[in-house]
Design a protein around this nucleic acid. Structure first.
Lengths: 156, 156
DNA sequence: TTTTATCAGTTTAGGTATAAACTGATAAGG
DNA sequence: CCTTATCAGTTTATACCTAAACTGATAAAA
């Protein structure tokens, strides 16, 4: 983790700005998460489960490691969430070589078809405070942040 | 929760965009949270505890309800986090009328003075993929989102 | 004064997340 | 062939967070 020593005419201010950014981000994230969870309750889903459903649904087949990497969470976390979803009959895990291959069951597919459009619509309502242009800007900024941060990070 | 019915020439796309935004946001948030937790471990703090420390440190005195509102979390959550921090001797809770007034202990103040500058610097490094201008843009977009969403929401 | 509302904070049950230690199977080197 | 790495996934302990039910005290209404 480097830091840029030639910057700093007013680097104190930049630090304050970053702290503020973090606060704003986590407040908004918390709020969104809570509302999404509430919305998804109609289908008996949580946000974590919805995320998994979408990833498997669109990238099937997928191993647990790949899934964890896509969602930026630990593999230990995946074990837990997938365990619950398997019990509920939404996904299958099949041992193959040394990995487990994930796929949706029929029930999971139905769930996917049904819930994704509703959740898309709901998410749209969460971001309607921004114009389409602003939404694209936001996406762009987040993409840049991700790129910066992906150098030399491996999640264990 | 309204939605804007007169929009939609290409509202399908906007919905896709929103889902993408959500994914990006939560990936970045997860990653940041994990790194911040790792960084704060040097002081034996978690991010949740750091947030509380900052809020009490800068807005002292404060009730639990006010704190929960500032952090956009539930009061039940506050009870837990504050309980742990009280045990560790960083904060005090004093019953007053029907509320509990929060303040930092001496130990808590020392912690605050020591950790805040380091964490500011660390957060700056997390956002260094963006120019100062872009960081302000991001802050601005997050502010707009917050405003939209604050209409008619009370957290219980 | 007694009853009823209200309201801050607590408790409980359950899902989510991490880090760190562990398991068991494949693969690589001796 | 046997030993040692490696690597996907699991387990365990701990913290976070929520929703929902509960407690106990103040305040308002009867």
């Amino acid at each position: 983790m480097f830091h840029n020593d030639k910057s700093s005419p007013s680097s104190k201010q930049e630090e304050r700005l970053s702290l503020l950014l973090w606060f704003r981000l986590s407040r908004f994230y918390n709020q969104s998460l809570r509302r999404s969870n509430f919305h998804l309750k109609k289908w008996g889903l949580t946000v974590a489960q919805f995320d998994v459903l979408v990833q498997i649904g669109t990238h099937q087949p997928l191993t647990q490691k790949e899934l964890a990497a896509k969602l930026f969470v630990t593999k230990g976390n995946m074990t837990q969430v997938l365990g619950r979803m398997e019990e509920l009959g939404w996904i299958k895990r099949e041992q193959e070589w040394k990995t487990k291959v994930l796929s949706l069951t029929n029930l999971g597919k139905e769930m996917y078809e049904d819930v994704v459009p509703h959740q898309e619509q709901f998410q749209a309502s969460q971001f309607q405070g921004l114009t389409k242009e602003e939404q694209k800007q936001l996406l762009d900024l987040l993409r840049k942040l991700q790129h910066q941060n992906n150098n030399a990070e491996e999640l264990e």
